[in-house]
Design a binder for these strands. Structure first.
Lengths: 341, 341
DNA sequence: TTATTTTATGACAGCGCTACCATAAAACGC
DNA sequence: GCGTTTTATGGTAGCGCTGTCATAAAATAA
């Protein structure tokens, strides 16, 4: 016995068949108008569009996706939303997708590759057109799915490694390295590092290692370091610097893993009457607006988060097919001299 | 002539039929195991799960969605991602969805109801289980779809109005009102307002009006105000205060639409040697961490962004059916006395 | 003119899954 | 022991759309 049409649906939403009937054309022709595919006579198009407007027709993307074995969804997997960095990336992605049919589906991994894998698999159930992830480090299972899937893949932020398809970002190792060179050149010798405890933030680790390398080459090293438990925040930066200076008051410069924490460092200095730059240099990473709006602009490195997201999404929608060649796009970085180091 | 199975697909992904065949059960039984529905014998479940693992089966959500006329997608429409406020809301939403099957699809409206309408319609094509929007003000078309759709609806941030289904947030009018009362009580008399030009930020407007009302009741009024062109930012706050004080140096307190801009105001004072609180009170809105990490914590109002997102998403997934009664949840706010006003 | 290409449209099956109904076997009530 | 409920499973149709192939009409070429 056939199930009553739309038996479990209410109210009865108009379908493409309703549109076709009203416009006096076949379903497939109506479909072509909706998708703007193939040759359609102007008069036909008009009739169909009128019918669509009249019925308030909304296409069913699940049906379309099933029939065509593909969707216009773009899976975006970000490590975190707490820091403005990833919302900035997301803004860039969104900006590239604004006037396209693509829609971002987002997941948050908490910097955990296993969570990333779990969310990735659940996203793949939607047959996304593309997947965006942060970093080049994934679980073997995730990597396997990324490599064999029929979708484009972009790995963001970092470019030190071998991407699946497209990588867009900068060399964090080099950023750390240049931070060290810059500060040594400015005369700083007694280096401290005030970080946080999320060890899986691969980018922060890469910058840290780059910093150590350049110090080593200059015959120097980190005299003291402290990692505050928990995630990165302004408060954590403030506390971290306080503890660091308590243990080792002789430092003349402290590098932070990002601007938020560096701002906290500056606040600690303001509170404790430590003359920033003269007595203690403070250096961050990211080049956030707020740091540059301070009376004493933060010395930091500008990362181009928005551009990274924008570029990645634009590249992804260029072609449905994954090309033979892998693409690596270096968005670079700039040292912002600022007034704090 | 029948189309070759999976003709336009490569490689051939395993389907539920493959799983069922390998496990020696019917498709529907395999489907029940995947979805954890109905009574299944333990031995059967095990066989099916083994088959799933062996084949690396990933369910096709488009097919599932089509067959069941519903999805596990949650459409999230936010005005902006530039300010940390909406990422905070998104974190809350995400947090509520973490161990559920729901997945957020996000769109950014730029505070424009027409863009909101356009994105909403494109999201409805996925038959979402729920829709989350900011504010209670939408286009008539959007409102109509929200009211007649077979999905739950949550309108976030503001509760001053008539929601479609669920509203979660606080009264921004009241927050503005309390801001005025608080500052008058602390002895401030010569009020200024340093805002930005995005007139469609309904919440900021509501707070502004609440502030004006309480000042009026106290026999006072805004002596001067300035709105910096463009969106809210720390830099805009700094510039806005500078212009405001240039036009009216006699102010003893300035209210900002949010903490970002208020921080900019403080930076202007630091730069110009104006003693904050003694010479000029500064008041913000949101209670961002960074403002509280300053040596002189920002006087502001704590809005509970994370909680708003979390509560809304939790409420939405409680039931698929929209209840008769509308729900309004007031997450409230707190005045943070701080040290700047 | 006639042959060929281009333009415009349609018939139809099937994408992979789940709602609906049916059924058989096991457990339970009295 | 016999009817009733519960548990476990399956057959089948169809969700709404689009890929494939076919076809007719119009435009172009020879």
């Amino acid at each position: 016995m056939p199930r009553k049409r739309n038996a479990h649906r209410s109210p009865d939403l108009p379908t493409l068949a309703d549109v076709a009937r009203l416009a006096g054309v076949s379903e497939i022709t109506a479909s072509r108008v909706v998708r703007d595919r193939g040759p359609i006579a102007d008069s036909t198009r008009t009739r169909v569009l009128t019918a669509i407007a009249e019925l308030g027709y909304i296409p069913n993307r699940a049906a379309g996706s099933l029939a065509s074995a593909g969707s216009t969804l773009m899976s975006v997997l970000l490590p975190s939303l707490s820091n403005i960095v990833f919302p900035d990336v997301l803004r860039g992605i969104h900006s590239a997708l604004t006037h396209t049919a693509y829609q971002p589906v987002i997941g948050v991994t908490d910097y955990d590759p296993l969570i990333e894998e779990r969310i990735l698999l659940s996203f793949l159930a939607w047959q996304p057109a593309a997947v965006i992830l942060a970093g080049l480090h994934h679980t073997p299972t995730a990597r396997r799915h990324l490599e064999h899937g029929r979708f484009r893949v972009a790995e963001l932020m970092d470019i030190d490694g071998d991407p699946v398809d497209i990588a867009v970002g900068m060399s964090h190792r080099q950023a750390g390295y240049e931070t060290g060179r810059h500060l040594v050149q400015r005369g700083y010798r007694r280096f401290g590092y005030a970080g946080h405890s999320v060890a899986t933030d691969d980018r922060a680790s890469a910058r840290y290692e780059g910093l150590c390398t350049s110090l080593r080459e200059a015959g120097l090293s980190l005299i003291a370091e402290h990692r505050q438990p928990g995630p990165s925040s302004t408060k954590a930066g403030r506390e971290s610097l306080e503890i660091l200076l308590g243990a080792e008051p002789s430092l003349d410069v402290v590098v932070f893993p990002n601007d938020d924490m560096a701002m906290g460092g500056i606040f600690h200095c303001m509170h404790s009457g430590i003359a920033v730059r003269e007595k203690l240099g403070i250096f961050g990473f990211n080049g956030l607006d707020i740091g540059q709006a301070m009376p004493m602009p933060l010395s930091t490195i500008l990362s181009r988060r928005f551009l990274i997201g924008l570029t990645a999404a634009e590249k992804l929608i260029e072609s449905r097919e994954r090309p033979q060649e892998k693409t690596i796009i270096n968005t670079g970085f700039d040292i912002i001299e600022g007034a704090t180091a």
